[in-house]
Design a binder for these strands. Structure first.
Lengths: 216, 216, 216, 216
DNA sequence: GATGAATGAGGCTTCATTCAT
DNA sequence: AATGAATGAAGCCTCATTCAT
């Protein structure tokens, strides 16, 4: 068994285009694994396969790295939520809600995706502006989209009358909390709960729970 | 009748016996406000009204402080959950579930109570044993208690057949996530969402969603 | 030859009263020897016989150390200059000027005293406010005191008419520059130029050069 | 007739031959403005309009840059001083001294010229060989030239007997110190003291102070 | 020759922990 | 038991220098 030499004999290569992405990807992993405060810039650098100083060619500080990271993760979510809310097709909203929840469950089953809200939760105390930004662009946007759909359902007598904002929380909490739990409390030997199954039954309960009472 | 250990030769009146509690209370507050890593022992000391060195008379390290804190918060919850599960009265479980959820909502509305799960979530990456312990004694116990009640409801045809473990998650997630959110994303000018209202409508939706279909 | 054990068996002693002075003294020496930028806090600490962290119990930063140092050195000089200017006795000013110059020469012969103006000169580029403060409190005060004495001499026909401010510069420059040179360009094997001799001849030349022309 | 080394295949017009001068000029400015230690190679490069790496094609290190800089500035001064000392015309030395001082004052009024002694003063602690070299080639040469002229004046009974070496210091200190002060303590809104005026009065005082007493 | 991305040693500063009082 | 001065290891960040392009 020979010791494989590295195929690249160069100590490093220029990759100014790729570096920011490499660094953010690495930072997400290590911040998530150890927490922001416990992560050393060296950890990020090693994970990205570069040297410590190189990070500072692209990001001003450790904090700037965190902010860029969260900003990057937030942007597509916020965009998609707005698009969804704007383009909901006519007709009953129940199937729509089901689709959205399953989509969310699938997305959040990816640890890299679930990592970001967790980071925000963990660092909100230290970086209130981050938390506020996340709240506005993601949480309120998401809750708003769901809330308006539920409201539509109520108006159309598809659902019985109830507070649509609270109902929206009832609908999405299970999926979100599951994402948090499976990331935080995962045990190595755990069979991960398939997100579709949980989301499926939850949506079923919810829709049964909110649907207009059968004529009496 | 307390046994005074010292014969009135001291000037300070605070009893050593109260110190651990004072320290833990202070630690909970500051850990929660700034996060564990960002909190200095000086912060804890100042909050407790004592000096930094004194903490080390009662706790071996900063980590030990965190562990004691979480342990202390976990104990009564675990005890109560076990008691509930053991002593559930006969009859329909729906009112029981409602009571439990409202109790949980009320408890978690206290920031000092909600702080603990948040701490665990934030530090799980660094202290896996803490996370595991919390999972076993609180999460699994709580989910177990709810699950077995739901199972009883299903057996009694009070509820339609579904996976009781998943249903338990559906039931409690809304209340827990609300506790997390209102702690993390609270805005100073926010009217806090009264926990009873959210829990009330959520339980209503849930119970309507799981109840046996009324024969029509 | 035995290895002498330290008489103090304690690793350190409490000296909260003495520390600031100890630290400033040490800092003056090492800043002067190596320059501010080239000096590590470790150097200061070692010179002061304490640990690096201790410095930060008394000074906020390396820069604060420099500022405190210069402030401390400036205060007595400024005070003395003001006192001198205020309490000059009546009569001819020539002996006064001679006394002042010799005093200045003696003072500046102490390397610890000469070090401060040198520090200011070296760091003026980085700390303009320091330079400005020094200029106002020391240089302008000193020049002002000398200038007003010379003016008195001119008014009393003791000196011939000339620009007193420029004459003040002529008078003190030699002593000051000598202080700078002997600090900067000192060679170990140099016999130091005795300040009194230089100052003595310089004042003699100066006073001869400014005295009223013998009646013609 | 210059020999073009490249056959017009390059786009840039700056000749490599000019680079060292460009770099040294830039370095002088920024070293003077911020001090040697506080100046980054990037600063020098930007000032020179080239890139950081290019400096290393011409100079081995930052220190080499400083040394080359000072060496370059020293050479003409040393040469001129030697020439002056060698070719002093016969007759009274007073006009000669006056000319030299005014020349020095004029030269030192150029901040780029005054910058060099200041740099040497500031970095003498770190680069003793620089200081020694400067002392030998500039200071001792300059003092020597003046000293020997004064000695000539004493021998010719133009001046009264005094220590010519100390008198030389008395003569030049005012001009040098003024150069230092105006560079270090310059205020933006200051009308700079015209060097000729200061030097003029100083030389007048000095020559009056050293001239043989008019028999009365 | 020129560039500027990449490196990594080094310094300031923080803070958990110790210990003399 | 309590204090808080003192310690020193550890981490963020800078920047002189190198080197692939």
């Amino acid at each position: 068994m020979t010791t494989p030499r590295h195929t690249a004999s160069k100590r490093w290569t220029r990759q100014p285009e790729e570096r920011p992405k490499q660094i953010l990807d690495a930072a997400l992993r290590v911040f998530c694994a150890r927490g922001f405060a416990q992560t050393r810039m060296d950890d990020v650098a090693r994970k990205a396969g570069i040297s410590k100083g190189t990070i500072y060619l692209y990001f001003d500080s450790k904090t700037a790295l965190l902010e860029a990271l969260i900003e990057r993760a937030m942007a597509p979510v916020a965009t998609q939520l707005e698009a969804m809310a704007a383009s909901a097709p006519e007709g009953p909203v129940a199937p729509l809600l089901q689709t959205m929840l399953e989509l969310a469950a699938t997305r959040l089953a990816d640890p890299d995706v679930a990592a970001v809200p967790l980071l925000v939760i963990g660092e909100a105390g230290r970086f209130p502006h981050l938390a506020q930004h996340y709240r506005e662009r993601v949480i309120e946007a998401g809750l708003g989209a769901i809330t308006s759909l539920i409201q539509r359902g109520i108006r159309a007598r598809e659902f019985r009358p109830l507070d649509p904002a609270l109902a929206a929380r009832s609908l999405i909490a299970t999926v979100l909390l599951q994402a948090i739990w499976s990331t935080v409390f995962a045990r190595p030997d755990d069979t991960p709960l398939h997100p579709h199954i949980l989301a499926g039954q939850h949506v079923d309960i919810f829709l049964n729970g909110v649907k207009t009472e059968a004529r009496r």
